[in-house]
Design a protein around this nucleic acid. Structure first.
Length: 274
DNA sequence: GGCCAGGGCCCAC
DNA sequence: GTGGGCCATGGC
């Protein structure tokens, strides 16, 4: 499947810190494991991407996953033509980013793991967990490569601390187990949080041990697709302080602050600014 | 080899 | 309600 879209850049998405299982495999080409599937994507040119899958799979899954029905151009153009000089540059630089619709449970566990880790460490931790607890699959269409999907809640709910620590979770082992137990038992209904408001979702998520305001916002944004969520990590904190002197007006971006946040995050980490 | 990382908990104050 | 120590561990 060849897809044309001005605001679809696989490398930018993969490097934007929102997902942890999208990795480069060759030039301009990335692999991705999500929703029990393995996918390869190739950036043909600035606004063209090859999805290596059937048309049916694309329509059924990836079109939604990459949020391809949403108009990002409108938001990018709004920022580029706006009066905020920093956001102007950030949006221009990261205009191929989209907010993925990841699986809620995977997002929950992934961002619990993310606390006090850098992105490479988060990735290797998640890969180890998938290898140990996730179902093994073979991709028949794309060369028969094996891959491990993200484990189901019931499986992680029964994990042992010692085994999880082998995956380098550190002190987060109990957070992971208890969160998985909450989901597996039905005590935490993540799907129901998609329908309710972002604020309600964050409040509910924070009741999980090991989930604070930042992780809750990440789960809300990347796992529940509440694009008004605005996660503040050390990088965003640095921007808010150094660029905006802690006077950034979130209300100016009401309803899509999470997208703005993503441009900021990607831009500051690119090292283009000193 | 020390500092930092898409932080949160817990306990003083 | 707020601030600081502490947590486990890999990347750089």
């Amino acid at each position: 499947m060849i897809i044309h879209n001005e605001n679809l850049n696989i490398e930018q998405i993969a490097e934007s810190g929102q997902c942890f299982r999208m990795n480069p495999i060759e030039k301009n080409t990335y692999s991705l494991i999500a929703y029990g599937r393995y996918l390869e994507l190739k950036q043909i040119d600035e606004s063209t991407v090859e999805f290596r899958c059937s048309e049916e799979e694309f329509k059924q899954l990836w079109k939604e996953y990459f949020d391809l029905t949403f108009n990002y151009k409108k938001i990018v153009d709004g920022l580029i033509n706006g009066s905020d000089d920093f956001l102007k540059k950030a949006a221009e630089y990261g205009r191929g980013i989209r907010i993925l619709k990841q699986e809620p449970f995977e997002a929950l566990i992934s961002f619990i793991i993310s606390q006090n880790k850098n992105i490479p460490a988060i990735k290797s931790c998640i890969e180890a967990i998938c290898k140990q607890y996730g179902e093994r699959k073979i991709n028949k269409e794309l060369g028969g490569a094996e891959y491990y999907i993200f484990p189901r809640p019931e499986v992680l709910a029964q994990a042992r601390c010692e085994d999880l620590r082998q995956c380098k979770t550190g002190y987060r082992d109990q957070y992971i187990i208890r969160a998985a137990q909450a989901v597996a038992s039905g005590k935490l209904d993540l799907d129901s949080l998609i329908k309710c408001s972002h604020e309600e979702a964050v409040e509910t998520l924070k009741s999980i041990h090991g989930v604070g305001i930042k992780v809750a916002n990440c789960v809300s944004l990347y796992g529940l697709h509440h694009i008004e969520a605005f996660p503040v990590d050390v990088w965003i904190k640095k921007i808010l302080k150094e660029i905006y002197q802690d006077k950034f007006d979130l209300n100016a971006y009401h309803g899509f602050a999470g997208i703005v946040q993503q441009y900021m995050f990607y831009y500051i980490r690119s090292n283009l600014i000193s």
